[in-house]
Amino acid sequence: MKRRIVVPAIVLVALIAVAGCKKKQPVPTQATAPPATAPAAPTAQLTATPGVISAGDQVQLSWHTTDANAVSIDGIGDVPTEGVKTVTPTQSTTYHLVARGDGGSAEASASVTVNAPIAAVVPSTSMTAEEEFKANVQDIFFDYDTADIRSDAQATLSKDANYLVSHPDVKIVIGGYCDERGSDEYNLALGQNRANAAKNALVNDGVGADRVRVISYGKEKPFCTESNEQCWQLNRRAGFSMDQ
């Protein structure tokens, strides 16, 4: 008889203990203070352009860190110490970047406000071809005054090529873009080389050359018009769109 009472009592105590523990668990995470920055601490910058979008639109995240060994962005994972990435948030999101280095760590965040779509979130199967294309074929970016494919662009291009190889009916136009510096006429030639470089990479990855058109826009159709490196980087690109 005693045992009958004792066993449930122990179980009850154990349950309470477990429940109690669970309740406390979030507290330490919230309480985690950002590590104090040491003198030679890394620095981090993160921006999202544009800051307000409608659901389904793309956002360019671009970040820049110094003195960092490891950089990660919540929800994206480990990333290079600087770079640009296109994301398509479905709801308002604050992107949080942590840069860790020998001298400590630094954080930066950037918020994107997503205006709710009229319809509920559409399952991917009912995306229009255009939306699916945009979600899967991402633009690549170039260094200053060159049409050489960067290593981060190489990765993007292989994904783009994978999508295009698995969707053989899709034809594309690659636009070559340049930043505002330099001469209009020379930038048309430079944009041409950027678009061509992207095309060649896709063709090497198995995309039929006859499916790809290239047009240089030089500095005639910029994505942004500010005179700073961030905007210039966004404008030095090869942009992909469906050929209709």
Partner: peptide, 9 residues
């Protein structure tokens, strides 16, 4: 004129 019809400008 300049043309990229041969591949590059």
């Amino acid at each position: 004129f300049s043309s990229a019809r041969g591949g590059h400008p």
